[in-house]
Amino acid sequence: MSISKTEKNTLLVEITGELDHHTATKIRTKIDNAISKDYKNIIFDFSALTFMDSSGIGMIMGRYKKILKYDGKMTIVSPKPQVKRILEISGLMNIVTLETSINKALKRM
């Protein structure tokens, strides 16, 4: 995974491989260390994420609650079908937007 600070108070978080309970625990801490009032928006780039289960949902929801304190926004870019289905089942699509590219996601911020 990688986290980079970009324009519009946004953290770009690229998660590759599999997002399960094991990897979510590690990723959670890294993102929390990067969130601040200057970096209150999150774009998750899921284009190279090959698998996610409900532990990923827990991780995303937890980060959403954190940025909400700073009035931040969250967008998920290019989830694969399996990941998209878990997002849909979870109800997360009601609070998080989906985009097809990082540029489009940045325009929303």
């Binding site: 409900s54 532990s55 827990g58 991780m59 089942i89």
Partner: peptide, 14 residues
């Protein structure tokens, strides 16, 4: 307290 989503069994069922 551990950010579990509570969706495990729902996903298994569906």
């Amino acid at each position: 307290e551990e950010e579990r989503s509570g969706l495990g069994f729902s996903i298994m069922e569906s």
